[in-house]
Design a protein around this nucleic acid. Sequence first.
DNA 1: TGCAATTTATGACTTAAATCATAATGATAC
DNA 2: GTATCATTATGATTTAAGTCATAAATTGCA
Lengths: 198, 198
Amino acid sequence: MIPQEILLKYNATIKTFEKDATLFSENETARYYYQIVSGAVKMNNYNEDGKEFIQGIFYKQQSFGEPPLFIDIKYPASAVTLVKSDILLIDRQAFFQLLKEHPEIHLNITQSLAKRLYYKAIIASEISSQEPAHRVLRFIDYLKNDVAKTSGDFTFKVDYTRQQIADILGLRVETVIRVIKSLEKQGELKIIKRKVYR
Amino acid sequence: MIPQEILLKYNATIKTFEKDATLFSENETARYYYQIVSGAVKMNNYNEDGKEFIQGIFYKQQSFGEPPLFIDIKYPASAVTLVKSDILLIDRQAFFQLLKEHPEIHLNITQSLAKRLYYKAIIASEISSQEPAHRVLRFIDYLKNDVAKTSGDFTFKVDYTRQQIADILGLRVETVIRVIKSLEKQGELKIIKRKVYR
DNA sequence: TGCAATTTATGACTTAAATCATAATGATAC
DNA sequence: GTATCATTATGATTTAAGTCATAAATTGCA
């Protein structure tokens, strides 16, 4: 996350996107650095059978889609708003100018990439080969410990449907529903007040 | 990858490790930046049932384990040599000094993290929910396109056993063996000269 | 060269998650 | 406040991957 006042000095613009607006699509070339002022964005792609895979969901203050800015590759996924959102955009050129002139911000960005890589490692190990109950439990745990902290407020208007959880974990809705039910019965999961995890 | 002559100016040392030596362990604090001079290193962890998960395998010229250097967290996995390897180590302090004094190298590191994040995204989407045959095929493809390019030579002394492939993809050995067999029969995989994919 | 260890191979059986179908509940809009 | 849509729920069935057991082939080491 880069302080807004600095971004604005580099001709950043804030645009409002309606719910379900596409910010960029898989295989496009990266042109902007994106940072969420308010709202939420999911990054997703679809595999050959048309099944959605959600790479991640980002909330206010978070940036996303940086890798293709740094290396010359196409976006590996698309970015779509989950609710009406204000998004800060800054041009690629200006972004690099900013990094050059603000080494401490460059370090921040590096740290945030490092953090994402770290979580991907954790998630990869949890997801791969674990039984579904474990995946769901760990995922919810991850949400509570990470997202909750970074976005501050977790009972946010955008919450995960069981379908979304399934899409992130590579499971079927029914499986996620059944797993959550049984976890509740076992007392492993406290309250799951429909879609909103507290 | 940071040029060796620069690293040596910052008191980097090159150490030789025997096969199966542990460079660092899960949950340890990061003290060094590591870069492979020669050899190969795998990063792995074990889940509760004792099943190994391989986060990645790194070859000469590649660095690994940076995220915990940048953010204050413990290693999410251990690093173990797959063959006798020469590894370049540089102290955390010196590493940051180097980044400060060489912004272009800082950018290189950021780019390499971005690249790893990008591949993790690709792999996550491929792995999650795809059928095993697909995972294996895509993994081998990824090896051919990425590892082959970065390490130059692919019919390298370190190759993947079916067990390792299974551990990376979260499958069982038998499944990987069966899948590879059937892919060979279908002509989807050319020559698999035992352990070495061409 | 020969022997032990590791890796690959293969069959039989079990099981858990996917699939399919259909219903109930909760949210949203008019 | 009712109708429509989305989400959650649940049962029956199928299927593919896991498990177990055991053998064959390779590798590597003495």
